[in-house]
Design a protein around this nucleic acid. Structure first.
Length: 479
DNA sequence: TTGGATT
């Protein structure tokens, strides 16, 4: 038996699923029509409704824009009181858009002092599929500037430049378009395409995080703040730092660089750089052979008291028990980086002793970390180090880093001097290449000072590290 | 050549 539905669509089977626009909006079985809605139907939030209006009163008002799929006045869960708002879903997406443009803030219902609100409900994904995060803006770019940048791609519903407490732009913004397509078009044209004045890299245009991603990030942040990363990370890191940056070639010879460290497994680094600590005190280079001869191989780690300081800070409160006749003169991690601590050519130089001592520590106790790792059998996954600034006087700016250095290498290099709460090498987003500078934050100023003392002027290859306190944020800012 | 950021 054929059925003619309200839409005039005739079907042999008595089912009708399309409206005049060819979209699904109702399922008619015999005489009964079960309302169906578009797959992309929009749930609208209706606000500023007088509390005496119920569904039956509201229906006529909204039906003029299309068939209603669902209309629910919001009631207090406990008291059942009318909350002055409702959710409304039309069968057709089109109807919702029409209602929104015809009604939203266009009229005020009797007894209300603000105009009616008709807009997609928050539950509709909060617009995140059309909201963009814009990064690498110039710090002086205003909302208007950002709007101008984006206006040709569609209708901008929202544009906010993120600002710190002092009102200074954080160099990023959110831009919400009225549709996903517009947002996507903006990404396609603008992302990476230009570099704003004062920005360090090309413009970033991407979809803003979803709620889920945001929650995840928050959790990571919390975890980072609470220091919930593996203690072994730190200890391994320290160990790795010494073995990386510190492995002395006793004979002053090049050693082959292998890339394994216990801290990070196989690292990406394959540096052939040569480390030399410049003699910053006397302003002169200390001869390599002189330094080397002053560091006799085979010196006992335990006999070098000064290594206790940097090591202790990193959680090595004690050296492992002297053991077992392992060879101590060969670095187990020979990575081609040769620090030549040269503050003084004598063996009493603390830094040199630290280097030497740690080298021997690394050489003599390769199993040192094993018992510790067994003591923490279920370490949580390492949470990626977020950018964290330390207190005033604890943050270092490091320039002339080797191109190959990444965050991990930077951290390893500075771990000997204290608790590194953050190590960040700046990377050019376009090329993914290091910009050869970075930041290291300690949790206390003396570690930072110790690091400056030891590492400023440190020669790597043809370059010398520049290690100094990071400029405070407000420095050099025009007022 | 001074922190790559968030709703």
């Amino acid at each position: 038996m054929a059925t003619v539905t309200a839409n005039g669509v005739q079907q042999e089977n008595g089912f009708s699923t399309t409206n005049s626009a060819g979209r699904m909006n109702g399922l008619t079985i015999g005489q009964n029509t079960i309302p169906m809605k578009d797959h992309d139907a929009i749930k609208l939030f209706i606000g500023q409704i007088p509390r005496n209006l119920e569904e039956k009163d509201l229906k006529p008002l909204f039906e003029e824009f299309g068939k209603i799929y669902e209309l629910t006045v919001l009631k207090d869960r406990f008291t059942g009181m009318h909350k002055g708002c409702a959710f409304l879903t039309y069968c057709a997406r089109e109807s919702a858009l029409k209602a929104q443009s015809a009604l939203h803030e266009q009229k005020t219902l009797p007894g209300m002092n603000r105009p009616i609100q008709v807009k997609p409900a928050d539950s509709e994904g909060r617009g995140e599929d059309r909201k963009l995060f814009v990064g690498m803006l110039g710090k002086q770019q205003s909302e208007d500037d950002v709007r101008r940048l984006f206006e040709s791609f569609g209708q901008i519903e929202e544009c906010t430049v993120l600002r710190g407490p002092d009102g200074a732009s954080k160099g990023c913004a959110f831009v919400k378009f009225s549709s996903h397509g517009e947002a996507q078009a903006a990404i396609n044209s603008l992302h990476g395409g230009q570099t704003m004045p004062g920005a360090s890299s090309s413009l970033v245009v991407k979809f803003a995080d979803t709620d889920k991603e945001r929650t995840l990030r928050r959790m990571h942040q919390m975890a980072g703040q609470l220091g919930i990363f593996s203690p072994m990370t730190i200890q391994f890191g320290a160990y790795g730092a010494y073995s990386h940056a510190v492995s002395l070639s006793p004979a002053g010879e090049e050693t082959t660089f292998t890339t394994q460290t216990p801290a990070f497994g196989c690292t990406s680094s394959s540096m052939s750089a040569e480390f030399q600590k410049a003699d910053s005190v006397q302003g002169q280079e200390v001869g390599r052979s002189k330094r080397c001869t002053s560091t006799p191989p085979g010196i006992s780690a335990a006999a070098v008291p000064s290594i206790a300081a940097p090591i202790g800070v990193n959680g090595f409160s004690a050296l492992p028990p002297q053991s077992n006749g392992q060879p101590t003169s060969e670095p187990i991690y020979t990575n081609g980086i040769h620090p030549y601590p040269a503050q003084s050519p004598t063996v009493t130089d603390p830094l040199q002793q630290a280097y030497a001592g740690v080298q021997h520590y690394a050489a003599a106790y390769p199993a040192a970390y094993a018992p510790i790792s067994q003591a923490f059998p279920q370490q949580p996954t390492i949470i990626p180090q977020q950018q964290r600034e330390g207190p005033e006087g604890c943050n270092l700016f490091i320039y002339h880093l080797p191109q190959e250095f990444g965050d991990a290498e930077l951290m390893q290099m500075f771990l000997p001097f204290g608790n590194v709460i953050s190590a960040k090498v700046f990377v050019d987003r376009a090329t993914n290449q290091s910009k050869c500078f970075g930041f290291v934050s300690f949790d206390n100023p003396s570690s930072a000072q110790a690091a400056i003392q030891a590492m400023n002027g440190f020669q790597i290859g043809m370059k010398r590290l520049k290690v100094q306190l990071k400029r405070p944020k407000d420095a050099n800012r025009p007022y």
